[in-house]
Write a protein that binds this DNA or RNA. Structure first.
Lengths: 190, 190
DNA sequence: ACGGCAGTGTAGCAACTGCTACAGTGGGAA
DNA sequence: TTCCCACTGTAGCAGTTGCTACACTGCCGT
């Protein structure tokens, strides 16, 4: 059991670096000092290996988000969450999540299922941070979904835009949300 | 030349339906009534075929966006653009774009290069619509990037959320941006 | 009539894929 | 000592991949 966990961690490190899409057993095994034979032995199939890798990556992502201390306002919460996205480890986890989500878009397994599971835990953590930073109970989930979607979208275009540009876009979003949530009433979903 | 164009269109149709990631020449060729031999003959390599497919898809996407008539306000512009995303053809084009972008995240060619090119034209079209709907010259590009990122992010989680949920999130964004752009001064990048 | 050239089918290559069969190791329990 | 079991290496299978060599068609200009 311990061995399996070690392999899962090592495989995750490798996948975070080299991507999930072209992942194949033999190169992966060689890189982490084992053999394809062993990976199949411990995980049963490549699909289960991939599911394990996605689970490990998701745990790491959530752990990083949970460490962000509560912010003083919704605006600051958005900026602080974005700051957390500056963490290279989190960036790689998100990058791989985007890969998995893209694969899941066409219903491929185990990606589609893993993505749903990962997203659940992730949204809980995002929502919790917004709540702790002053967002209302009813509005927090919607805000979290909006912020998450925007961050993921920016991740997709990250190679295109400098970090400065992305940061300014996030500032626009943060400002807009601050006005929306503190203004007279708040928008959308009551 | 004509034949090549026909093949590119047919290949695009097939890729929009079945995805770009697992795409391989023989099944694709069989589906569109030709042979792998012919695809290589006309395009030279699979990479060039893929580049052609992405270009065709991008042209279609932009054509759809350009048809959206100018909206009366920034809020309405965001909602109208989102409405355009309800178009199934556009949805599939965006879905494939997300696939290409995910592949490009790790620097894979020809995806990374194609994605940059596609994004340029796409952002021009998005910006143009926001401009025509009342957004200022300086703020329109930032708004377009923000809206685009959010839409793409929502696309990633589309299997997770009902269209109603996504729509409410977009409404939140539209309301927030409307307040931000018509309020006293406007946020971020002056 | 003839040469050339765009287009096409058939067969195949070398590399790679996930996975399996077989044959072992070593150590710890009885 | 004996047995068992977690673990491992070697070889290989059947299938798929992008791509190519070779041979052939038909049409079009001369």
């Amino acid at each position: 059991m311990n061995k399996k966990q070690e392999l899962a961690e090592a495989a995750t490190d490798h996948a975070l670096e080299h991507g999930l899409i072209g992942l194949s057993l033999r190169p992966l095994a060689a890189a982490i000092g084992t053999s394809d034979r062993m990976l199949i032995y411990h995980f049963g199939s490549k699909d289960e290996l991939v599911a394990a890798v996605l689970a490990v990556s998701n745990e790491r992502s959530i752990a990083i988000i949970r460490k962000v201390p509560p912010s003083g306002s919704v605006r600051q919460a958005v900026m602080d969450l974005w700051g957390a996205f500056g963490d290279r480890q989190l960036q790689r986890c998100q990058r791989m999540y985007v890969e998995a989500a893209a694969l899941g878009l066409f219903g491929r397994e185990p990606y589609a299922t893993s993505v749903v599971g990962s997203n659940d835990g992730w949204m809980v953590a995002m929502t919790a941070h917004l709540r702790a930073s002053g967002a209302g109970v009813t509005e927090a989930p919607g805000l979290a979904a909006l912020v998450d979607a925007t961050f993921n979208g920016l991740m997709l275009d990250r190679p295109l835009e400098s970090d400065d540009v992305a940061r300014r876009i996030v500032e626009d979003l943060a400002d807009a949300l601050e006005r929306a949530t503190t203004g007279t009433g708040h928008p959308g979903n009551e």
